[in-house]
Simulated scan of single mutants.
Amino acid sequence: MRDGIEEDASETPEPRKPRLVYPFEAAPETGSGQAVEVAPGVLWLRQPLGGSLGFINVWAIRDGEGWAVIDTGLQTKETSQAWRAAFAGALGGLPVTRVIVTHLHPDHVGLAGWIARKFDVRLWMTRLEYFQCRMLVADTGREAPEDGVRFFHAAGWDDEAIDNYKARFGGFGKAIYQMPDSYRRLTDGETFRIGDHDWRVVTGQGHSPDHACLWCPELEVLISGDQVLPRISSNVSVHPTEPDADPLTDWITSLAKVKAAVPDSVLVLPAHNDPFRGLHARIDGLISGHERALTRLAGKLSEPKRVVDVFGALFARPIGPDILGMATGEALAHLNCLIGRGLAAREKDADAVNWYRAA
């Protein structure tokens, strides 16, 4: 599961995985500054993350006399040291020409500002990702808003959980180096050149506001970020800023859009796990997994339930305080999707707690 604040604990296992092909026997050593070439002029590097994920895949594409970098890792001492090793090692001392970020979560954008300033180059992001990231960073150090307190109280949180939310609020920006004050906007469907090849932007919603994938038809490569991961399913959450949102419908629609736009023959370069082939089968598996979860959840609503009462229908592991916020966001995404389909209804009781039942 993922809420954009603690991405290292943010993924849930997919119950059934399609058969995928992993063409590379060895991965680059995390943080070593070394790389594996996955296509002509396209390098695979791994930067360190804490928690269960352990690393994020980042990519460098030969761009004339330098390298375009896609995603960056968290702002940590270990990650900046790993990038210095990469600049001197796999990137051969050549400059970075631009920094491209798939979406706003800290493990992707964390060191974008540092690299952009170091090489005096432009940050490339979609508009919604850039401005929402700036907004969330601005919350750093703020007290938790009353809207957030009401949101989690309505989900059934107890006083201890809400106190924990208040204590942790405003931590998003701590993992992100100061963002550049200007950027170059990525737009869905546009094509731009990196080095010798054209790359097309394919955006998706649900996991983040306007996530950008990069597809190179000539190389048959798709840099998928968190939009399509081979072994884990990205968190899709409702947040206090938009409590009535239906991001799961956005997510399912976006996956279908990627499947229609990008051929199955591509080599998929994901942010987590290993590069793989089998894009369409994996997308089908992700969509069917959420549909099964929606069916299980709908079956639990014959009696009214709070958000915190439905975790067992969605998650195979216990939900502790460390991932309670992410689990709540994902459970709400499924509940709001059922409401949007006319399969569930919501009622607020006298204590301002929401109860969900089958419609």
Rank of each mutant, 00 (worst) to 15 (best):
G289S: 14
S208Y: 04
V266G: 14
D351M: 09
L269K: 09
W355R: 07
A82R: 03
V228H: 01
S10V: 07
R84H: 10
E11H: 03
I339V: 09
E190L: 08
A359P: 02
Y356F: 15
R142K: 13
F119V: 00
R19Y: 02
L53C: 08
E14I: 11
Q178I: 02
P40N: 05
R122N: 04
G110Y: 00
N336M: 06
S288M: 07
L91C: 05
R117G: 15
R341S: 14
G113W: 15
R200G: 12
E220S: 14
P180R: 08
W59D: 14
A331W: 07
D284G: 04
V121F: 01
P106I: 10
T126A: 12
D226I: 01
N273S: 14
I56P: 13
R317W: 14
I283R: 09
A327I: 10
A212D: 07
I223P: 11
A293V: 00
T328W: 02
E11W: 00
E7Q: 11
V96N: 10
D181C: 01
T72E: 04
L332D: 05
V221Y: 10
G299P: 02
D147F: 07
S288P: 02
V149F: 10
N235V: 05
N164W: 05
S80R: 14
G340Q: 03
V137E: 13
K174C: 05
W114V: 10
L222N: 03
T79S: 13
H290P: 00
S237W: 06
R277K: 11
H239D: 03
F315D: 09
G225H: 06
W124Q: 07
S233C: 03
A212H: 07
M326Q: 15
Q227T: 08
D284C: 04
R193D: 12
T126G: 09
D158W: 06
D226T: 06
G173E: 05
R185S: 04
P243M: 05
V228A: 01
E14T: 14
F172N: 01
A68W: 15
G41N: 12
A116C: 14
